[in-house]
Simulated assay, not measured.
Amino acid sequence: MSTQLAAQISDAVKSAMRAKDSARLGTLRLVQAAIKQKEIDERTTLDDAQILAIVEKQVKQRRESIAAFQQAGRTESAQQEQAELDILQEFLPAQASEAEVDAAVQAALDEVSAQGVSGPAAMGKVMGLVKQALAGKADMSLVSARVKAKLSA
């Protein structure tokens, strides 16, 4: 873990230890463990893009857990997951504006239609392009819904 993002997470762990913030420390250690596990599994050192993907996965898991807990009426668990989500989001890049998301979606749609692919079959190709353009900057489930709406229109 020698990349900039890994160093940032490591520094956050150290400051959480100094501040005796156990909730923050636990969340950050989970991220570090996920990064280390991936490095061990792949026998390589991860770069910032790969670490960002791990953080995005953790964020997605927290969002799904929050929805499940709220649906089950477990507000205390949902609040805990929300606190962890807030900590994880500190390591994601600034979120893209609606205009940036629309521009990226439209650019991907234009590129895919130039290749002659249209309709629902273009969904995978468009999402692949959009994911590259907006990595970590947007909730891909919301972007996916937007792409689906544009493709069906």
Rank of each mutant, 00 (worst) to 15 (best):
G73T: 07
R74S: 11
T75C: 02
E76K: 12
E76P: 00
S77H: 11
S77L: 12
A78Y: 00
E81I: 08
E84D: 15
E84T: 09
L85A: 09
L85F: 14
L85N: 04
D86M: 14
I87W: 03
L88G: 02
L88S: 04
Q89D: 09
F91H: 03
F91C: 02
F91A: 00
L92Y: 01
P93E: 09
P93A: 10
P93S: 10
A94Y: 00
A94H: 01
Q95E: 09
A96M: 08
A99R: 10
A99I: 06
A99D: 11
A99V: 06
A99F: 11
E100I: 02
V105R: 01
V105T: 01
V105P: 00
A107Q: 10
A108I: 05
L109V: 02
L109D: 05
V112T: 04
V112M: 08
A114M: 04
Q115L: 13
G116E: 13
G116A: 07
S118H: 08
S118R: 14
A121M: 13
G124Q: 03
K125D: 13
V126G: 08
M127W: 10
G128V: 07
L129Y: 04
V130N: 13
V130T: 12
Q132R: 10
Q132S: 13
L134H: 02
L134S: 02
L134A: 02
A135Y: 05
G136R: 12
K137A: 01
K137W: 04
